[in-house]
Design a protein around this nucleic acid. Structure first.
Length: 150
DNA sequence: CGTTTGACTACGC
DNA sequence: CGCGTAGCCAAAC
């Protein structure tokens, strides 16, 4: 880890949560993708933010109040896997919530980001908040289905 | 009070 | 495709 918190955690977290609320059921986003929509906070250089942004989004997810309606379960890591400790009750809960939304996992515990990956909020939504379009998701978590289509 | 350990990710073997 | 590493801060142990 580097800097374990953004300069203004509360403001950064609120922005992250607002974005996460836009993720529709059955879709997932990643820590890095969400970070890519948020510009570097004042005083944070872009290279530093590139390293830390995803970690800070993770902090924001960790800080989601228990009773909130924020769909925290729809945020996973860039590999398409759940980032909570494998086998933990929290990880099981996250997987269960996603499966209830129709998100499927392969035998390695990964989702197919090319199938359920989110493409971000509408451009005007982002624009009105000074945010950027998300960086495209990796496609490595592809299931073999796409390959066998050919 | 020294160590450990992060809701991460890109990159090199 | 899987595994280790850098990044170099801070709070929990």
């Amino acid at each position: 880890m580097v800097r374990s918190h953004p300069p203004d955690p509360e403001q950064f977290f609120a922005l992250v949560w607002e974005i996460v609320e836009q993720i529709p059921p059955g879709s997932v986003s990643t820590y890095g993708q969400i970070a890519s929509m948020i510009p570097p906070p004042p005083g944070v250089e872009p290279p530093q933010y590139a390293r830390l942004g995803a970690l800070w989004v993770g902090k924001a997810m960790n800080a989601v109040p228990n009773d909130s309606a924020i769909p925290w379960q729809r945020v996973i890591n860039s590999q398409g896997k759940i980032s909570l400790p494998a086998g933990s009750s929290a990880a099981e809960k996250q997987r269960g919530l996603l499966e209830m939304e129709g998100v499927g996992f392969d035998d390695q515990g990964r989702v197919s980001l090319s199938v359920v990956g989110w493409d971000g909020p509408p451009a005007e939504w982002l624009q009105s908040r000074g945010l950027s379009p998300p960086r495209p998701l990796k496609k490595d978590a592809d299931d073999s289905a796409q390959l066998t289509l050919f």
